[in-house]
Simulated scan of single mutants.
Amino acid sequence: MSLEQIFSLSGLIAMTGWAGLVLAPRWTVTRDWLAPVIAPLLIAMVYVWLMTSNSRPEGGGFGSLQEVTLLFSDPHLLLAGWIHYLAFDLFVGAWEVRDAQRQGIHHLLVIPCLFATLMAGPGGLALYWLIRSVVMIIKRRKRQAAEAVL
């Protein structure tokens, strides 16, 4: 299988999980298995294979920006880095959906966070935390106002 085919297949697996999170967030298969477990693990197996079957370029590593640049000069390891993003971002997106459901946050507020997490990882997580915080403050104030009336 070529690197392009692995790239495409990994993206397809990840996008299947993302589509499930957006379109069927309450379906147990999507929320509890496909997005947080099955898709990331399939992608992770490809990641592990790429990382263990290819040697680091001379001087490549994680100790400096220059070492990371050298490491990712190898297309196999660059693909492994991309797959790393796919797996972790999808896992975070699945957590956002489950947490939002536990907190009673409407799914329409979560969808922009999912898109941001897909496109910008930590930026999407930050957006989710911001929305979550605002919703929790509003709910707490409503609860306090209701208790004050009683």
Score class of each variant (00 low, 15 high):
W18Y: 07
A35F: 00
Q66M: 10
L77T: 06
M1Y: 04
C113D: 01
P36H: 04
G121V: 01
Q5K: 14
F91D: 04
R140T: 10
G61K: 03
V149R: 02
F115N: 12
V110P: 05
S133R: 10
A87Q: 02
W95P: 00
L42H: 13
I43P: 06
E4F: 12
L65I: 15
R140F: 03
Q66P: 06
W49V: 08
D74W: 10
G123S: 11
G20E: 01
M51H: 13
R26C: 11
C113S: 05
T28M: 13
E147R: 10
W129F: 09
G59A: 00
G20K: 09
G124Y: 04
V97E: 05
G11E: 12
L34P: 01
A146C: 02
G61V: 03
L125H: 04
M119I: 05
S55D: 14
I138M: 10
H76D: 11
S73W: 05
T69E: 15
L21H: 05
L42Y: 05
A24I: 01
W82Q: 12
G60V: 02
L109I: 03
H107P: 06
M1V: 09
L127K: 05
S53H: 15
L23M: 08
I43S: 01
A100T: 01
M45S: 13
M1S: 12
G61S: 06
